[in-house]
Design a protein around this nucleic acid. Structure first.
Lengths: 145, 145
DNA sequence: ATCATAATATTGATATATCAAATAATGATT
DNA sequence: AATCATTATTTGATATATCAATATTATGAT
């Protein structure tokens, strides 16, 4: 194969692998936990682990758009996993706290997430994964100039 | 780092690299060619290279949903890159032909696409890329059961 | 020839991505 | 204190992803 075709194949595989993984993960989560998305869980988990972050910092942390974060938080509030109240010092912001239901969901879902990752990575050597990590990190670097 | 954290990092990088690449590529395409998306170009290119495919086969080829293909094709028709007419033998389908403007766009945009890929992969060894391809292919396999 | 089923595509609803514009509050400057 | 730039978030518009439902046509079995 020419270098050009190899490159094309690489990006095709990159798209396809992340989509395959997302589909598998979402299917398993939906089966077990009903109507919550992987993205919503990711945001919820980030808020639990780093409760001091602003919405914008959350967006950066999970590599999402500010607008998407606003909407995901709306859904988490509607679903009863987050509570929104006035921020004590900055009235542009809200104080977002995880409800007991939210905490509980995160605890319940954790083994499933780990299992999804194991399923996806089965049969891949640690060294291969390390190389792949390096390649992906370099792509991020190259594309962020 | 624990294996668990290394796995988490891997999926984080997977998400981040594909998003970084898409953003960089779309930015460059938009700058040079205005209002057309990378996804629309991908579908258009697939239709040119394999004109015999049904919409469903296109969806499989580009790893997209049937519904998304319908909508992307709508946009391509609206933008004058595709023409939609009755299918000669199967009246459930449409005959989609690329307009001269569509052909032209594909020709014009090709060097930019190749350049985007080169930018993203700069500094990565051929052997590393091969390992990464293998890893991604295995993930696709693992997640498609 | 008819009828059930399969194939093809569309549409609707909801979630997320992206960009731009709008709101609102804060902080800095004068 | 009034003004102004900046910060934090929301909203609107458009594109895409996904699932379910629908419409239409084609095909195969009887």
């Amino acid at each position: 194969m020419t270098a050009e075709k190899l490159n094309a194949t690489f990006f095709y595989l990159l798209e396809k692998s992340i989509k395959s993984y997302r589909q598998m993960a979402q299917r398993n989560i939906s089966d077990e936990f009903g109507s919550i998305t992987v993205d919503q869980l990711l945001v919820l988990q980030t808020m639990r682990d780093q409760p001091e972050l602003t919405q914008q910092q959350i967006a950066v942390a999970v590599f999402k758009d500010f607008a998407s974060i606003t909407r995901i938080i709306d859904l988490l509030v509607r679903k009863g996993f987050l509570k929104r109240s006035d921020h004590p010092t900055d009235r542009r912001r809200f104080e977002l706290t995880i409800t007991p239901e939210g905490e509980d969901m995160l605890v319940q879902v954790r083994p499933r997430i780990l299992k999804n990752r194991r399923i996806a990575l089965e049969g891949i050597e640690e060294e291969e994964l390390a190389v792949a990590r390096k390649v992906l990190a370099r792509i991020v670097e190259n594309c962020s100039q």
